[in-house]
Design a protein around this nucleic acid. Structure first.
Length: 292
DNA sequence: CGGTACGCCTGAAGGC
DNA sequence: TGCCTTCAGGCGTACC
């Protein structure tokens, strides 16, 4: 079957993971952490025992997110940041439950959740993700999150407009720039630009207030829709016995270069921008003309 | 300084 | 049918 989950954690997936971890972990204790690949723990706290860095004995107070960054906060202040990169997963298995075979490989860290004995696993085949340990939230923010812009899911029109006004780079590059706004990856960048009718190469600062507000609204809408539908990947470990029940939001442009536009029928164009494959509709997203 | 290019890494997919 | 190449991309760093 072709139901192998093409896992691509963008903001909606990370938010879905955050919500699931919040439900499973808040008020519960992480015990018996094990690290199978040491280079996955990226923090430079060589003075701290690895078990402590992995929140051993910590009762989870909250699970927070900014953009695509996730963090577990323990009652004693310790923080474990998780970044999923592009193939990272945090999986939860009920005690005694079988682990689906396709999740066996590339497990880099594992915890037990007390008292019920749920197993939590961090796996990441391509290892673009990682774990970072901090003594408190302030350290996390100063070391890692202070460089992130406003979260894209809740960014206001005004915040969005001021973010894109700060750069003359192509609007697509601006959307992908995590320090301007946090959480947008290649998929939602292309989808939002299509929805907003904005050509990806438009200089960001030249997107006017009306178009910019429209783009911001479309982006928030797409992300929110995906969060609502986000059970997608979670469903896999909620029902490990099979039933992939994969629900994928239909992409308008992403991965559809050379195919016809779902809105106007014209052939979608594909190009490289900011090192990323970029797909857009030349008719629905007209290039800005410098004329006049 | 602000932009773009590249490398890290592995699995899927396509060509011959 | 099988091997080999290419591609995917978040993000740090290197470079212009």
């Amino acid at each position: 079957m072709g139901d192998n989950v093409r896992y691509m954690p963008e903001l909606p997936e990370v938010e879905t993971v955050r919500a699931a971890l919040e439900t499973a972990l808040v008020g519960h204790e992480l015990v018996r952490p094990r690290l199978f690949r040491h280079d996955v723990l990226c923090s430079s706290r060589h003075d701290e025992p690895i078990a402590r860095q992995l929140l051993s004995g910590g009762v989870i107070r909250s699970v927070i997110r900014r953009g695509k960054h996730l963090a577990l906060v323990a009652h004693d202040g310790r923080v474990l940041e998780i970044h999923l990169g592009m193939t990272g997963q945090v999986l939860l298995y009920p005690p005694g439950g079988p682990i689906p075979e396709r999740f066996h490989g590339h497990v880099h860290a594992r915890w037990r959740v007390a008292p019920e004995g749920t197993t939590m696993v961090f796996r990441d085949p391509r290892r673009f993700g990682g774990l970072w340990s901090f003594p408190d939230v302030a350290s996390l923010v100063s070391a890692r999150w202070s460089r992130l812009g406003v979260d894209a899911l809740t960014i206001t029109n005004a915040e969005f407009l001021s973010a894109i006004a700060r750069t003359r780079s192509p609007i697509k590059s601006a959307l992908l720039n995590q320090s301007l706004l946090a959480g947008v990856g290649n998929i939602y960048a292309d989808e939002a630009l299509f929805a907003g009718g904005v050509h990806p190469r438009t200089p960001a600062c030249r997107v006017d207030a009306v178009k910019g507000a429209e783009l911001a609204a479309r982006l928030r809408g797409l992300l929110a829709d995906a969060v609502r539908a986000g059970g997608t990947t979670l469903r896999d470990y909620a029902a490990p016995d099979g039933t992939p029940g994969e629900f994928r939001l239909e992409h308008r442009v992403y991965g559809r270069g050379g195919q016809s536009c779902r809105r106007c029928g014209v052939t979608l164009r594909s190009c490289q921008l900011a090192g990323r494959t970029t797909v857009y509709c030349p008719r629905c997203q007209p290039a800005v003309t410098t004329a006049r």
